[in-house]
Protein backbone atom coordinates (compact mmCIF):
# COMPACT_ATOMS: atom_id res chain seq x y z
CA UNK A 1 0.00 0.00 0.00
CA UNK A 2 2.87 2.32 0.76
CA UNK A 3 3.87 2.45 -2.92
CA UNK A 4 0.37 3.49 -3.93
CA UNK A 5 0.36 6.58 -1.76
CA UNK A 6 0.88 9.95 -3.38
CA UNK A 7 4.16 11.75 -2.87
CA UNK A 8 2.46 14.21 -0.59
CA UNK A 9 1.77 13.10 2.93
CA UNK A 10 -1.75 14.43 2.48
CA UNK A 11 -4.36 11.78 1.89
CA UNK A 12 -6.45 11.94 -1.28
CA UNK A 13 -9.54 14.12 -1.12
CA UNK A 14 -12.82 12.83 -2.43
CA UNK A 15 -14.52 15.59 -4.33
CA UNK A 16 -16.77 16.05 -7.32
CA UNK A 17 -15.35 17.69 -10.44
CA UNK A 18 -17.86 18.67 -13.09
CA UNK A 19 -20.34 16.20 -11.72
CA UNK A 20 -17.88 13.30 -11.62
CA UNK A 21 -16.63 11.72 -8.38
CA UNK A 22 -12.90 12.35 -8.24
CA UNK A 23 -10.08 11.43 -5.84
CA UNK A 24 -7.39 14.05 -5.90
CA UNK A 25 -4.09 14.85 -4.28
CA UNK A 26 -4.68 18.51 -5.00
CA UNK A 27 -4.85 20.58 -1.86
CA UNK A 28 -6.13 23.73 -3.49
CA UNK A 29 -8.25 24.63 -6.46
CA UNK A 30 -5.12 25.88 -8.22
CA UNK A 31 -3.52 22.47 -7.70
CA UNK A 32 -6.63 20.79 -9.09
CA UNK A 33 -6.61 22.89 -12.26
CA UNK A 34 -2.96 21.92 -12.81
CA UNK A 35 -3.70 18.28 -12.02
CA UNK A 36 -6.51 18.31 -14.57
CA UNK A 37 -4.11 19.88 -17.08
CA UNK A 38 -6.37 22.85 -17.63
CA UNK A 39 -3.96 25.74 -17.91
CA UNK A 40 -4.28 29.21 -16.51
CA UNK A 41 -6.76 31.51 -18.17
CA UNK A 42 -8.59 28.89 -20.19
CA UNK A 43 -11.17 27.92 -17.62
CA UNK A 44 -13.30 29.51 -14.94
CA UNK A 45 -13.98 27.83 -11.63
CA UNK A 46 -16.57 27.56 -8.89
CA UNK A 47 -16.61 25.59 -5.65
CA UNK A 48 -19.90 24.54 -4.07
CA UNK A 49 -21.75 26.97 -6.31
CA UNK A 50 -19.59 30.01 -5.54
CA UNK A 51 -17.35 31.62 -8.15
CA UNK A 52 -13.63 31.40 -7.37
CA UNK A 53 -11.59 33.86 -9.38
CA UNK A 54 -8.37 32.69 -10.97
CA UNK A 55 -6.29 34.78 -8.57
CA UNK A 56 -8.04 33.18 -5.59
CA UNK A 57 -7.58 29.55 -6.63
CA UNK A 58 -4.27 29.08 -4.82
CA UNK A 59 -5.93 30.08 -1.57
CA UNK A 60 -9.02 27.94 -2.11
CA UNK A 61 -8.35 24.82 -0.03
CA UNK A 62 -10.32 21.78 -1.09
CA UNK A 63 -12.23 19.63 1.36
CA UNK A 64 -13.86 16.24 1.12
CA UNK A 65 -17.27 16.53 -0.46
CA UNK A 66 -16.53 19.75 -2.31
CA UNK A 67 -18.21 20.13 -5.66
CA UNK A 68 -16.02 21.88 -8.22
CA UNK A 69 -17.13 23.26 -11.57
CA UNK A 70 -14.50 23.95 -14.22
CA UNK A 71 -16.04 25.64 -17.25
CA UNK A 72 -14.94 26.99 -20.61
CA UNK A 73 -16.58 28.80 -23.50
CA UNK A 74 -18.95 26.97 -25.84
CA UNK A 75 -21.50 27.59 -28.54
CA UNK A 76 -24.66 29.20 -27.19
CA UNK A 77 -27.86 30.90 -28.15
Amino acid sequence: MANARPRTTERLREITVNGRATRTAAQTLADLVVEQELGEGRVATAVNGDFVAERARAGAVLHDGDSVEILSVRQGG
Binding site: V17, N18, G19, Q36, E37, L38, R42, V43, A44, E69, I70, L71, S72, V73, R74, Q75, G76, G77
Partner: peptide, 22 residues
Protein backbone atom coordinates in the same frame (compact mmCIF):
# COMPACT_ATOMS: atom_id res chain seq x y z
CA UNK B 1 -22.98 36.90 -31.00
CA UNK B 2 -23.92 34.80 -28.01
CA UNK B 3 -21.86 32.07 -26.38
CA UNK B 4 -22.29 29.84 -23.34
CA UNK B 5 -20.17 28.24 -20.62
CA UNK B 6 -20.00 24.49 -20.26
CA UNK B 7 -17.95 21.93 -18.36
CA UNK B 8 -14.42 21.37 -19.65
CA UNK B 9 -12.99 17.89 -19.53
CA UNK B 10 -9.61 17.15 -17.97
CA UNK B 11 -6.88 17.99 -20.48
CA UNK B 12 -9.60 19.38 -22.70
CA UNK B 13 -9.00 22.24 -25.08
CA UNK B 14 -12.51 22.44 -26.52
CA UNK B 15 -13.25 25.78 -24.95
CA UNK B 16 -10.00 27.37 -25.99
CA UNK B 17 -10.35 26.14 -29.57
CA UNK B 18 -13.87 27.51 -29.79
CA UNK B 19 -12.86 30.80 -28.25
CA UNK B 20 -9.96 31.21 -30.68
CA UNK B 21 -12.34 30.44 -33.55
CA UNK B 22 -15.03 32.87 -32.48
Amino acid sequence: VTVSLRREQARGRTGQRFLDFI
